[in-house]
Design a protein around this nucleic acid. Structure first.
Lengths: 142, 142
DNA sequence: CCTTGACCTTCCAGTTACTGGAAGCCTTAT
DNA sequence: ATAAGGCTTCCAGTAACTGGAAGGTCAAGG
């Protein structure tokens, strides 16, 4: 089948499928007219990738997962390790975002949001913090 | 002062400060030897940017915030709007990550993680879902 | 037979916000 | 004189696509 149909079946954009070929993830056959030709197995792989990507796995992890998937003699521990590593990344990102959220929502709550210029958000961004210690450590300066 | 000291005082890497000049965020003077020359106000701006970036604001938002900061006749409502927009983005990302986390941790919990090949993680990634309806919609296919 | 439109092809450029590295100048200390 | 360290510019690469231009292919309609 042509790339358009493979895209419709896998849920991936045509451009993305071409990209996945370029980086060696899924290599289709070619028809006599030069068109890419995808079979069931190709589409299956593409859908696999679509799902792995939607769980936030990076392309490198996807490559690993695909290889494990195709390796009948894999150990589930290897898959699990990739997954737990990614879960750790997700948790790290969530924690970072939550911290941002906390700070930012506090500032927003403190901001009047009217036509006066006073603003705790800008105030906080502009606030001088303990730079003196660092400055002194380096050089008396000009 | 030279860029190295501005970096130490602002907390930004030298490379980043050069980059911020390139995109027109903070333009230092130049000394007679061609070196960049930063004053207090420049360092202040750089530190402002470092803090805004650490809250996850994009460069465009930073540009806006910096302009508002320097505009004595700003309305705090404008600042607040930028901030709430960004807060929305953060919430969107958190929600997305949480959904990933939920799914992924469920799969990990279901995976034995031993040397046998059976693995619900791969099973879920490979699972056929309702593609028939879509397939039928488009074309009977080959 | 010709055209139209939908697909398909390749290649190039742009996105975000830096980061690393090479080649070379400036300054200061030994 | 030279070595170290900081400074300069410019180029390339990152992740994972996405958009667009220029052009080939194919099936249907007139």
């Amino acid at each position: 089948m042509n790339i358009g149909r493979a895209a419709a079946l896998s849920g991936l954009p045509v451009k993305t499928i071409r990209y996945y070929e370029e980086i060696g993830l899924v290599r289709p056959d070619r028809s006599s007219n030069g068109y890419r030709d995808y079979g069931e197995a190709h589409v299956h792989k593409l859908a696999f990738l679509a799902r792995a990507r939607s769980l936030g796995f990076g392309i490198d992890d996807c490559r690993t997962l695909l290889a494990l998937y195709e390796d009948r003699s894999r150990a589930s521990a290897d898959v699990r390790e990739v997954a737990t590593g990614h879960l750790g990344e997700i948790d790290r990102k969530i924690a970072e975002l939550r911290e941002m959220r906390e700070t930012l929502s506090g500032l927003i709550a403190a901001c009047a949001g009217d036509d006066r210029p006073d603003c705790p958000i800008l105030g906080s961004l502009a606030a001088e913090r303990e730079t003196e210690a660092l400055g002194a450590m380096l050089d008396p300066g000009p």
